[in-house]
Simulated assay, not measured.
Amino acid sequence: MEREIVRLDMNRDFEAFEELSVISFGEGTNSKRKMYEWLFDKNPYNKSGNMMYLLKEGGKVIGCDGLLPNELYVNGKTVLAAHSVKSMTHPDYKKQGIFRMMTQNSCERGKQDGVDVVIGLANDQSYPAYQKFGWPTLFEKEVYVKPILINNILKRRIKIGFLSSVGNSIYTAYMKNKLKVQMDKEISFEILNTVPKNIQKCWDTYKSKYNVLLVRDYKYLNYRYNERPDVKYITILAKIKNEIIGFAILHNSVANGSKMTSCVEFFTDPTNARYIKSLANVISKYCYDNGIEYVVVGTGLHGKFKNVLLSNGFMITRKPPKNNMMIANILSDKLTMNEINGHEKWHITQGDGETELDL
């Protein structure tokens, strides 16, 4: 039967696309149509339409691969990047070169639409294939976690609910008091349900202090966090005399029966340990105030983020994240591999890649 690669059409293809997603990633994968319409069709960085492509055999979808375009800031210039996402092959059609063919198709279509570099956070299944394709590995992503409430941790260890509750109460009272002493009196905070337009000035003020990161201007943050239809995010602004000196964006959820928050954005002056510490402290305070048991945050090695986090109660997760190998394929002459290669050059957050989108 004849095969063809087509651009994803929500009205025509969504049910088949959803079916392959569940087969490939399990029942827990995000299958909300409105989310995919927002993510693919309404992406403001699209040039000629969405960049998701399906391999069809008759009416059956047997493969998928695509790109999510966005802007990348690299040493003072802005280029068009795209995350590689939704790489899927139907299990009945494995070992037929479909993954390679669909990856090549995405890169060719991306180049036609002006994409300068394709990046991706590969998992243990896809990473060996990208290595065979010759895609360089830029770095291995780290994730940091901070326990806030330890009731569930103690329950697993002590096995006695009363004792674990007492232990949690003592620990929480001590840590909250310690945090109160550490809070910077000159920095105020505002907690919002949306990302405000004046956050643009914060990006403009500090972007030149970074080497490589996704552009976090209002255009991107508004699309990514205000317009997403299936998740509500919390924005925390850090201010000195009404001027925004940093921000964090949080996604509250439940994982393994515990209330947690993922810090999907964490942005301030990367050279200013005081600002970074203040943002980390207010995230912890937010967790205490809202009964959240732990917080996770990601960062690259650029600036002082990692050192400040590790000295303020955060620790590297015991297991690496599912999608942790940052890979890249340069498609134009607007940047070089040397400019983006290396963890020490990057600032990367939990909002980057497929994990936060539950893809």
Results as ranks from 00 to 15, higher is better:
229 P>S: 05
344 E>T: 02
119 I>L: 04
263 C>V: 08
65 D>S: 09
220 Y>F: 14
181 V>S: 09
234 I>S: 04
156 R>L: 11
84 S>M: 09
338 N>S: 12
27 E>F: 02
37 E>C: 12
39 L>W: 15
256 N>E: 06
186 E>C: 04
358 D>I: 13
321 P>S: 11
29 T>P: 06
225 Y>H: 02
132 K>H: 15
285 K>E: 03
51 M>Q: 04
179 L>G: 14
92 D>K: 06
200 Q>R: 11
210 Y>D: 01
286 Y>L: 01
30 N>F: 05
60 K>I: 10
230 D>V: 07
107 C>H: 06
97 G>N: 05
182 Q>I: 00
40 F>V: 11
168 N>T: 04
178 K>W: 04
107 C>T: 13
122 A>T: 10
55 L>P: 02
268 T>V: 10
224 R>H: 03
152 N>G: 15
55 L>W: 07
212 V>E: 02
16 A>Q: 14
90 H>Y: 12
142 E>I: 13
322 K>A: 05
142 E>Y: 02
4 E>N: 13
141 K>Q: 11
12 R>Y: 02
23 I>F: 08
167 G>I: 06
300 G>N: 08
286 Y>T: 12
297 V>M: 08
59 G>Q: 10
88 M>S: 02
93 Y>W: 04
208 S>K: 10
16 A>F: 01
235 T>N: 13
72 L>G: 00
272 N>E: 05
98 I>Q: 02
309 L>I: 02
289 D>A: 13
347 H>I: 15
1 M>E: 09
26 G>L: 08
319 K>W: 14
197 K>S: 04
36 Y>H: 07
173 A>L: 04
81 A>G: 09
312 N>L: 15
52 M>D: 08
210 Y>W: 04
108 E>R: 07
20 L>Q: 00
56 K>N: 09
273 A>Q: 07
103 T>C: 11
171 Y>I: 11
117 V>L: 08
53 Y>W: 11
11 N>A: 14
269 D>N: 08
75 N>A: 04
6 V>G: 08
267 F>I: 00
297 V>Q: 00
38 W>Q: 09
